[in-house]
Amino acid sequence: MKIYIIATMAFILAIAQVAWAGFMNIWGMTFPLIIVYMWLIRKQLTFNQFTVLSFFCGIIIDLLSSSVLGISTFSILVAIAVINLLEKRTIYHELFTSLISLSASCLVFVGLVYYLTSQLSSL
């Protein structure tokens, strides 16, 4: 039951990522709400479940937004890999590592979406 609630919330937030982009615009970049949610639920799911859920959230964002299909999906998958790698492979204090993984994944997601969108739309 818990996994369905987590997944439903994730899908709603994926739609909200696009619907609320105008309200979450900071210096021309959209705040990655979906990545923050993914980071919050990272310990509630197995890595495979986490991956599949992230993939579908990315697909929802891509289907609603005007950018090339797959950009957000790829970026979200890279961002969750960053969360996973930093949290599993680092030896620092847990809170410090968690905060680093949150900041790094947000930066990776925003950076990748921005870079891929600008590169692919100029082709």
Partner: peptide
């Protein structure tokens, strides 16, 4: 990193290429 992860990463890259060639 699991096989599922790498499969989905490649699938998303495939989607990007496909959408560039035949807009979905």
């Amino acid at each position: 990193m699991s096989r599922v992860y790498f499969f989905l990463v490649f699938f998303s890259l495939f989607l990007i290429s496909l959408d560039r060639v035949f807009p979905l």
